[in-house]
Simulated scan of single mutants.
Amino acid sequence: MGTRLNPYIGFKDTARSAMEFYRSVFGGELNVSTFGEFGDSGPNADHVMHAQLETPSGFTLMASDTPDGMTYEPGSSITVSLSGDDADELRGYWDKLCDGGTVSTPLEKQMWGDEFGMLTDRFGIGWVVNIAGDHSQDGQAEGGGAG
Rank of each mutant, 00 (worst) to 15 (best):
D13R: 07
D13F: 02
R16V: 05
R16L: 09
M19T: 07
M19I: 01
E20N: 07
Y22K: 07
Y22A: 04
G27T: 12
G28P: 02
E29S: 04
L30S: 04
L30T: 01
S33E: 14
F35H: 09
F35E: 09
F38N: 15
D46I: 03
D46P: 02
H47K: 15
M49Y: 04
H50C: 07
Q52M: 15
E54P: 05
G58D: 10
F59Y: 15
F59V: 14
S64V: 04
P67R: 12
M70C: 13
Y72C: 11
Y72S: 06
T79S: 14
L82M: 15
L82T: 01
G84V: 01
D85E: 12
A87N: 01
D88I: 04
L90V: 03
R91A: 06
D95F: 01
K96G: 06
K96F: 05
G100M: 04
G100T: 04
T102E: 11
T102W: 06
T102I: 05
V103Q: 05
S104C: 03
S104L: 00
E108A: 12
K109L: 06
K109T: 14
K109Y: 03
M111A: 13
G113W: 12
D114Q: 08
F116A: 02
F116V: 11
M118E: 15
M118T: 15
R122H: 01
F123R: 10
F123K: 06
W127Y: 11
I131A: 08
G133Y: 15
D134V: 01
H135M: 07
D138L: 15
